[in-house]
Amino acid sequence: MYETTYHRPSSVDEAAKLFAQGSEAKYLAGGHTLIPVMKQRLASPSDVIDLGKLKELIGIEASGDTLTIKAATTYYDIMQSADVKKAIPAIAHLTSMLGDPAVRHRGTIGGSIANNDPAADFPAALVSLGATVKTNKRTIAADDFFKGLFTTALEDGEIITAVSFPVPAKAGYAKMRHPASRFALTGVFVTKTKAGDVRVAATGASQNGVMRVPAIEAALKANWSAGALDSVKISDSGLLADIHGSAAYRANLIKVMAQRAVTAAG
């Protein structure tokens, strides 16, 4: 690891100020991506600004038709939250399948979506549920937030403060785990909104990161059932292919995981 300066600010404002002062500063949340790449000397930030302990970034609120999870809330706390289990149990389920216990105790929802790993679970949940990302500067719709592999709409130094989810009528998540990393080889989140709309997002499958799946959305809108997807064909064009899964296999997984997510959603 190269030398760096570690900061533990006491507020979001202070964090942003420290970021602006650093020549090449990085925010740290759970650290699951940043710390390994620093240890491998693939990243050399001048300053590391730890957001993980900021009280104003931790907590879960459920009010009416909205579930808000603050950005530095750990997966473990999300998974255990009675509010989450009641409002959107699919999010608790997704979180329970994320990594292992050590990962779940450190990893945060804000860190996950800011990194936007193409195989991360939370981007699928945000896009499918039509969530809103709140930052220290603005609010951004999930559809506008994820911009491709490891790329988001965040500006330099901008800090995610919370994610707000509209409580759906039904939602479910199913994933096929990558045999080595246990990330999503392909994961699919399905949502039926209270207004009757259907939104489906897949992660781990596309070369451009999280993707909507219009063919599945159309079929489920007509008939919300796993069986409705039997005849749906998913194109493998633009899908990831590697030693763990061909594009055709991932196309199959999009459909199969969508069916299982619908079954789980009820």
Binding site: P179, G245, Y249
Partner: peptide, 11 residues
């Protein structure tokens, strides 16, 4: 025999 390979063997 990864899931990918088994699935391809089946299909």
């Amino acid at each position: 025999a990864t899931p990918d390979r088994v699935w391809h063997a089946i299909h």
